Structures are given as C-alpha cells and as structure tokens.
Computed example of a mutant assay.
Amino acid sequence: MTPRSIFVATSLALVVGLAACSAPATPEQLPFFEPGVEFTVNQVGTGCTADGAYRAKVSWDVPPSMSSKIEVQVGDDRSGVFARSNDATGSEETGDWVRDGTLFVMVDRDSKMVLAALKAGAGNCTAPAVETAGD
C-alpha cells in the first residue's frame, strides 16, 4: 500500500467510526413517542424566574420489551445529558432553567434509538415571585 492509500483508508475508517458514535437525529415531528413510551415534562410549582425559566419534572415510562437503559438529552444540539437511568420508569426534577421550547430527547443508551422527543411548553408565569426571608 502506498502512503496515500493508507491515509485514505484511515480517513474513511475515522469517518465511519464517528458516524457510528453520533447521536441519532431528532425527529422532525414533535412531540415524538415510540409506541408504548410515555415521556412528559411538566412544570413543578407555580411561577418563573424573571427571564421566564421554570423548574420541571421530567418523567418516563418505557415498555418492558424495550431497554430500560435510557438517557435524557437536552438542547437543540443535544450536548447536555440531563438524566441517565437503568430503570424503565422514573423521573427527575430540573433546576430553574426550563423555558418554552427547551428540547428534551430520550434515547436508548444501548441501541442509540430515539424513544421520545418533545419541547417544553411555556411556564405558568402568572404567579407572583416567591418572597424570601427579609422581604
């Protein structure tokens, strides 16, 4: 083999390897749920921060026929991992950072298949701000 053909073969192997490790595409139609999968994002409490962010509870229920090894990714680039679980049913609370349109994607960690995807709705921001001691 010539040095050039070794370079081309190595480059091709690298590209194929990176493609295999990349996250599966987010479905175009949201919300998205594989059959039998339940996935919700609901505001906890009332009120929002000054910039409209709120605390939410992310809940999932995956049928026994699917893997229970899930990962919940957040954001349009899905670079943030919010939760990982080995339980088919569960929930986690966020901090005060969820906003209208925040993308949540639940992925099977073994197969990398998207099990569900949705965008959070607008928070109930009509409640008065929570007062702190000394106000």
Rank of each mutant, 00 (worst) to 15 (best):
A129P: 09
T126N: 12
V98K: 02
M106K: 11
F104S: 08
R109D: 01
V130K: 14
G95H: 07
G101L: 05
D108N: 13
L118M: 11
F104H: 06
R99I: 02
W97R: 01
T126G: 12
T102G: 04
L118K: 09
A129N: 11
L118H: 01
F104M: 06
S111E: 07
V98E: 00
S111C: 08
E131T: 15
N124G: 10
R109W: 02
M106P: 08
L118C: 02
D96F: 06
G121H: 01
D108E: 10
K112L: 12
G121Y: 00
W97M: 02
P128V: 11
A120G: 02
A129E: 15
V130S: 15
D110Q: 12
T132F: 15
K119S: 01
M113K: 12
K112R: 12
E131C: 13
W97N: 09
T94G: 01
G123T: 07
M106S: 08
L103C: 08
K112M: 14
K112N: 14
A116F: 10
E92I: 10
T94Q: 01
A116L: 04
A129Q: 15
R109L: 09
K119N: 04
L103S: 09
V107E: 02
A120D: 02
K112G: 07
L115F: 13
T126Y: 08
C125D: 09
T102V: 04
P128Y: 11
A122L: 05
P128Q: 15
A127R: 10
A122E: 12
L103Y: 04
S111G: 05
V107C: 08
F104E: 12
E131M: 15
T94E: 08
A129R: 15
A117Q: 06
R99F: 09
T126M: 08
T102E: 00
K112P: 00
A120Q: 05
K112T: 11
E131H: 14
G123F: 02
A127C: 10
D96M: 10
N124L: 04
V105C: 08
F104W: 08
G123Q: 05
T102Y: 09
A127Y: 12
V114Q: 06
L115W: 03
S111P: 07
E93S: 12
A129G: 13
E131Y: 03
K112D: 13
M106H: 07
M106F: 02
R99K: 14
W97C: 00
T94M: 01
M113R: 13
L118P: 03
E131V: 15
T126S: 14
A129H: 12
L103F: 06
W97F: 14
F104G: 06
D96K: 13
A127G: 10
L115N: 03
A127K: 11
R109I: 07
A117I: 05
G123V: 03
V107Y: 10
R109T: 11
T126K: 12
M113S: 11
E92C: 00
A122I: 02
M106A: 13
P128E: 15
